[in-house]
């Protein structure tokens, strides 16, 4: 039951959710807007990987989710330092 819900309800809604911040990524007036949009997209990608691991019973995708979270955190910190020291 939960795999059917994950496949037919959760994955389409998460696909919409990961496509929405692209609007902010293109339009965002400043650099921190774009960084925040990328951060949210990384978090939604973690959820998509976890849902995929739930549907196909492949726990290796949880490791991929952890790595995506780590890279998103490091990228946000790096962009924050770059933005702040630029002036």
């Amino acid at each position: 039951m939960v795999q059917t819900i994950a496949l037919w309800v959760v994955l389409p809604l998460l696909s919409i959710a990961v496509a929405l911040p692209v609007i902010r990524l293109v339009r965002g007036p400043s650099l921190p807007d774009r960084v925040v949009a990328l951060d949210v997209m990384g978090t939604i990608a973690i959820a998509i990987f976890a849902t995929y691991a739930l549907i196909n019973r492949k726990p290796a995708f949880l490791d991929a989710a952890l790595v995506v979270g780590l890279i998103g955190f490091i990228g946000t910190i790096a962009f924050a330092y770059y933005t702040e020291r630029r002036i």
Binding site: P32, V36, G69, T76, R86, I87
Partner: peptide, 26 residues
């Protein structure tokens, strides 16, 4: 482990990017 990592890093990252945004005068 993923939940703990997310809850520990998300406030730090958003605090730093908000501080940088205030600092450069967004």
């Amino acid at each position: 482990a993923g939940v703990l990592f997310l809850f520990l890093t998300a406030p730090v990252a958003s605090h730093m990017i908000g501080r940088a945004a205030y600092m450069i005068g967004v």
